[in-house]
């Protein structure tokens, strides 16, 4: 199924997660192509984070299949992990470590060589203009800068796919725009981006988006096609229309 088309990097089939009687994710299926920006939308509690956690291998699905970068999420978790990057909702760098120390640490645990870490960190510091403050503690940085650093570290080991779980929540519009520049740059380098967001203007930046309601995918297409299909002017309106169907309470 996957081998037939080489440039599909995420393939999900009937993936389900139940917590007791509660079905958090109900038989979702979709595919993501290489270098695509795939927006994963849904109201709070729709099951986005649960779905992501299954894809990145920290939550076992109840049933269904999923293939990440050509590896099965049940049996080849190790290989899945080597080929993905992840940035969570919470800001998740070490605040009491300096920028350089964070870079070295994340390079180190992904098994990069000392030379690789050195070269790539110089490159990264220059790109983010962090050269002069590389020995500052991360806790001293403004939130937006932290998020940019966190994203850069999520793709530091050049993964095939990066999963971003609401990466820009709480960040000002200008920094958000800059953040998306980084995302575009990553896709230009062949990295596939799987992103969840609350901001509907960001949804417009995605190549394709899916909208999840009550654990199921209610819509999946490019933003333009979706607007045509629902005869609405913005993703925001479509999202509102679909999210109103929700029976779950937040």
């Amino acid at each position: 199924m996957i081998k037939s088309s080489e440039n599909i990097v995420i393939s999900v089939n009937e993936l389900t997660k139940k917590f007791g009687d509660f079905t958090a994710v109900n038989r979702i299926s979709f595919e993501v192509k290489e270098s695509e920006i795939f927006g994963f939308l849904g109201a709070n509690g729709a099951g986005k984070t649960t779905a992501i956690k299954m894809l990145i291998g920290i939550l076992k699905p109840t049933s269904g299949k999923a293939n990440i970068a050509g590896f099965d999420i049940y049996t080849e978790t190790e290989n899945v992990k080597k080929n993905i990057g992840y940035m969570s909702q919470k800001f998740s760098l070490y605040e009491d470590l300096t920028i350089s120390e964070n870079i070295n640490f994340f390079g180190g645990i992904y098994g990069l060589s000392d030379d690789e870490i050195k070269n790539k960190s110089e490159e990264l510091l220059t790109k983010l203009k962090f050269n002069e403050i590389k020995n500052n503690l991360v806790s001293s940085l403004p939130l937006g800068w932290k998020q940019k650093l966190a994203f850069s570290l999520a793709i530091f080991h050049s993964p095939k796919i990066v999963f971003l779980d609401e990466p820009t929540s709480g960040v000002d519009p200008i920094t958000r725009r800059q953040f998306w520049d980084l995302i575009y740059e990553a896709t230009n380098n062949g990295i596939t981006v799987f992103v969840t967001t609350h901001y509907m203007d960001e949804a417009e930046y995605c190549n394709r988006i899916s909208i999840m309601v009550d654990g199921e995918i209610e819509a999946l297409d490019s933003p333009i096609n979706l607007k045509d299909k629902f005869k609405l002017n913005s993703i925001d309106d479509i999202f509102y229309l679909l999210a109103r169907k929700s029976k779950r309470k937040e």
């Binding site: 990145i56 291998g57 920290i58 190790e78 992990k81 080597k82 993905i84 992840y86 969570s88 909702q89 919470k90 800001f91 998740s92 760098l93 070490y94 605040e95 994340f106 645990i109 992904y110 098994g111």
Partner: peptide, 13 residues
């Protein structure tokens, strides 16, 4: 608590 554990569990460690 800080969420770094999640990042570590996603890493190949």
């Amino acid at each position: 608590e800080t969420g770094t554990m999640e990042i570590l569990l996603v890493s190949p460690m």
